[in-house]
């Protein structure tokens, strides 16, 4: 009997449309675009700051414009999704021994969320106070 295996091709550019799990993965991956754009924008801000008060004022006017605010709103959403997707899988990469077992995953995830909340709160409070 001769063999004639049939190969089902995977569509190279649209495979992630097959199910929700893959779409969530791709959403997680594209968060990086917004992080990169934000950090690049921030870097430009640092250059403007270096160039003196006038240039800095122009930069501040730029980030206050409506398109900039809309961009930052979207970027904020993606940054939060990045944080959530990153913290939720931390127990997989990080196994901490405890007695004859491991520290439960929810404690590791919870600690990350706790630090995230703490850092954010401190930053906001400092901004308000200083």
């Amino acid at each position: 009997m001769s063999r004639k295996p049939y190969v089902r091709e995977v569509p190279k550019a649209t495979w992630y449309m097959r199910n929700g799990r893959y779409l969530r993965y791709m959403a997680r991956e594209v968060t990086c675009i917004f992080l990169a754009l934000y950090m690049a924008g921030l870097t430009i801000g640092l250059v403007r700051l270096m160039q003196g008060p006038d240039k800095w004022e122009t930069y501040l006017a730029g980030v206050s414009s409506t398109p900039a605010v809309i961009f930052h709103l979207i970027a904020f959403g993606f940054a939060c999704y990045h944080a959530k997707s990153w913290f939720d899988v931390t127990p997989k990469a990080m196994r901490i021994p405890q007695g004859n077992d491991f520290v439960p995953g929810r404690i590791i995830v919870g600690t990350h969320y706790g630090i995230w909340g703490g850092v954010s709160l401190v930053a906001l409070v400092l901004m308000g106070v200083l």
């Binding site: 992080l35 921030l42 801000g45 930052h72 709103l73 940054a79 990045h82 930053a123």
Partner: peptide, 12 residues
């Protein structure tokens, strides 16, 4: 993950 959301929130 720890700092980007709050940085964007404040500066942007």
């Amino acid at each position: 993950a720890f700092v980007a959301p709050v940085m964007i929130l404040i500066t942007g």
